[in-house]
Amino acid sequence: MRRGLEAIVLAAGLGSRFGGGKLVSDFEGRLLIEGALGAAFAAPAQGVTVVLGADDRVEDAALAFARRWGESRRLRLVYAADHAEGLSASLRAGLGALGDDCRAAFIFLGDMPRIPHDVLEPLAEALDKGAVAAAPVCDGRRGHPALLSRALFAQLRDLTGDQGARAVLDALGDRLALIPTKDQGVLFDVDLPPT
């Protein structure tokens, strides 16, 4: 755990393309959101903030997961009242819940269940070496989670609509550290139910 680092799990969406209930649906023998929660709690972060919204069952799932793993003290739940606006609303709610001592935040997406835990420490190390943000890259594609320094929080709070941090990261140039990985889990998300 590193002082000043926090983790945020964006889990407020409806999952409409999935047909609703996406994050609490079964995925490989567990709830879909549990993959993101496991990665967030594995991050070298002081706390894990889960942003809630469209599906009340996500709160119960997060609480139950944290209890099972002995992590209840690190869990913070935040409700994004304007979650219907999209990803930016969830991001704003998560950032708004962080204390003044937070110097950077990992951003996890609730529908990305295969994030490899071994990318997390290298992301933190990149910020220690002066990067403004860090993200994994696999097969030439930038993946998740991103680790974003406080210097970017104001820009992120200004985002609107169904967009996350992509444009902010794109504008960073070489101030964004890219951490290579061969693990496709940094790219894998669930949009549609299994067929």
Rank of each mutant, 00 (worst) to 15 (best):
D128S: 08
A62Q: 11
G130N: 02
C102N: 05
E71L: 13
V137N: 00
V137F: 01
Q163P: 00
A39F: 05
L123A: 07
G4W: 09
F27L: 11
L176Y: 08
Y79H: 14
R67C: 13
A80W: 02
A39T: 09
V58D: 05
T195E: 15
L95E: 00
V78Y: 10
H83I: 08
P44S: 09
D158L: 14
V9G: 06
I179P: 05
R74L: 12
D111A: 07
L172K: 00
A54H: 11
L95K: 03
D118I: 09
F65V: 13
L152Y: 05
L37W: 09
A36C: 11
A36H: 07
E59L: 13
G19V: 15
P136M: 10
A81C: 08
F188R: 13
S16R: 15
D162R: 03
L98I: 11
G86F: 02
S149L: 11
A165K: 00
P180C: 02
G99I: 11
D26C: 08
D60Q: 15
R142Q: 13
L127A: 03
R2K: 10
D60V: 12
A146D: 05
G161H: 01
R17M: 15
Q155E: 15
P44A: 04
L95C: 05
G21M: 11
R68G: 14
L120H: 03
A177S: 08
F27T: 03
R114V: 04
R142D: 03
D111G: 02
D158N: 14
A84W: 11
A134C: 07
V50S: 04
R2P: 00
W69E: 15
L156S: 00
D162W: 03
A36V: 06
I115V: 15
L176V: 07
L187H: 02
T49E: 08
H144N: 14
A45W: 06
V137P: 01
G130M: 07
G96S: 12
P136Q: 07
A61H: 08
G99C: 12
